[in-house]
Each structure stands twice: as structure tokens, then as C-alpha cells.
């Protein structure tokens, strides 16, 4: 295993807050302000060469009393090197916003829209940040832990 998370820590000693390797998934937690810089590095550096953004999602840590509350999780993959890395960024509820990565990986477009829709995390600079799975009339962000799982907001018909 190439120990990418350790190499990333060497490269960004103060920006990479935390690294771990749980069950073989190499993970690095990056400071919020350094996301774009780190992403740029991960994409262009020949040793990392992450040309694919496999997945982008968020986790709400309300019930676990996380501070800050949200974690945005990026999964990268490299076709050429066949390795993976997970990057996490922690953001608080009051200022739930991150810079967009659509310029680096177009795949981020819909993924970021989904995270906005489900968690209410804004992505600054996103070309078209609107709801993707829910309808515009829907208020709230359903995957937040404080949204009741069966609180319905029907467009027509009874609420049941």
C-alpha cells in the first residue's frame, strides 16, 4: 500500500489535521481553507494523480455531538495508479459552506447539488446550486438528523 495519507500529511503538515487508515481505507482530514489547494495538488501531482472523483457526500454528526457538526467526504480514485484516498473536511452548522470542486472534476456538479439538497451545505462558486432529488417547494434538508424521517410535505393530496 502506498500510504498516501501519510504522504499527504508530509506535504501539508499543518493543513492535514488528522490521518488514519481504518480497514485499509486511507483517510486524511483536511482543514477547511486548504480544500481547493489540496484537491488541486491531488489531481495534478504525478504521484497521486487522482483523475476521478468517485464519490462526494456528507455526514451529519448531530446525534454524536460532533463539533463541528458536518463532515464532507470525498473519495478519489486514480485510473493510472489504481489507488484510492478519502479526504474529509469538517464544517460547522452556522457557516455550512465549502468551495466547489466543479472546476477540477465536473462530476462534483451533481454530487454537490445532492449534498446541498440533502444536508443544506452550500458550495460556493457552484454554477447551478439547486435541489436535485427533492422538489423546489420542499423546505428543509431531509438527511439532517433533526429532520423527522416521516415529515411529509406533499404537493397534492393529504399529509398522512
Amino acid at each position: 500500500m502506498p500510504d498516501l495519507h501519510k504522504k499527504l500529511k508530509e506535504k501539508f503538515p499543518d493543513k492535514a489535521i488528522e490521518i488514519h487508515n481504518h480497514r485499509g481505507d486511507e483517510t486524511a482530514v483536511i482543514e477547511r481553507g486548504a480544500l481547493v489547494e489540496a484537491a488541486q495538488f491531488l489531481k495534478t501531482d504525478p504521484e497521486f494523480d487522482f483523475n476521478v472523483l468517485m464519490d462526494l457526500t456528507a455526514v451529519d454528526g448531530l446525534e454524536l455531538k460532533w463539533t463541528p457538526r458536518f463532515e464532507v467526504v470525498y473519495h478519489f480514485y486514480s485510473f493510472a495508479k489504481n489507488h484510492r484516498l478519502r479526504i474529509k473536511v469538517r464544517i460547522c452548522e452556522k457557516d455550512a459552506a465549502l468551495p466547489t470542486l466543479t472546476g477540477l472534476w465536473p462530476a462534483a456538479d451533481w454530487f454537490e447539488r445532492e449534498v446541498w439538497d440533502m444536508f443544506g451545505i452550500r458550495f460556493e462558486g457552484h454554477p447551478n446550486l439547486k435541489r436535485i432529488l427533492m422538489y423546489e417547494e420542499f423546505s428543509g434538508h431531509p438527511l439532517r438528523k433533526d429532520y423527522p424521517y416521516n415529515k411529509r410535505q406533499p404537493l397534492i393530496g393529504p399529509k398522512n
Binding site: P142, Y147, P148, N150, K151, P154, G157, P158, N160
Partner: peptide, 13 residues
């Protein structure tokens, strides 16, 4: 699917 997104039976519509 008893959740926020699903209609609870189409006979409500």
C-alpha cells in the same frame, strides 16, 4: 417506504 418522500398509497390521490 414510510418516509418524507413517498405517497402513502395512491388512493390518497
Amino acid at each position: 417506504y414510510d418516509n418524507y418522500a413517498t405517497v402513502q398509497g395512491i388512493d390518497t390521490i
